[in-house]
Amino acid sequence: MPATHYSPRELMVVCAAREIRDGENVFVGMRLPLLAFALAKRTHAPNCIGLFEAGIVRDTPSSELLYTMGDAPNITDALWTTGTVTLLGLMAAGDVQLGFIGGAEIDRYGNLNTSVIGNWRDRPRVRLPGSGGGADIASLAQRLAIIMPHERHRFRERVDFVTSPGYGYPDEHGPAGVSWRKRVGLPRGGPVALITTMAVFIFDPETGEALLQSYHPGTSIEQIQEQTDWPLRLAPSCRETKPPTEEELRLIRECDPHGVWTA
């Protein structure tokens, strides 16, 4: 039964969980994707495996809410604890079907900035923390899902610094998209979903452009356009986002009872 009372972040968790297919190896990351992994495990993807770049592999969600992937409960009952180069190396070899990342800024081609806002060669306006493993996941996972708050200053025509490559940009050698990734030498991958507080986008692999796939209940295409700095293109099947079920909400709230990440 569809629920009526939920937070935007709870809906984002549900949308993120829908990206996970059963049996996949998923680079989980923190916060909302971590809850999405737990939700997918308990619903449609009981056989997915979670990989954490700190050097952890698990097939069960941790027994307590995590603030960081290296928290002690994430190591207890792990399938494997190892090193970061080993785990990211498995992803470089193509073993990771889906990776989740976030960012401070994104553009219409799914390129993400988590490094600097303003001029990176001189004194930037805002210094952001940097890549962490984000640029590696964007480079090397078979599919990438991006999770971000939807605000106009974050959804830009072109980001100031490409920390994590999406589909690049059109240039004198050809269009953005899968062909750009091939041109620069990336072995695979690219964004397949951009999940925001207002909407879900998919990407056109030919042009690399974000296409509005669904708008969350309570928002409209017009409102989303207002918060997006590029002219929206709609997917042919564009519709309202399917709300969470009561059961999905119950499972999310079991993992995050105090709303640390979902309030």
Partner: peptide, 13 residues
């Protein structure tokens, strides 16, 4: 050698 970061601005920075 790696293929990570190809297309990122990190190697330019």
């Amino acid at each position: 050698p790696t293929r990570s970061l190809l297309g990122s601005d990190i190697p330019r920075q």
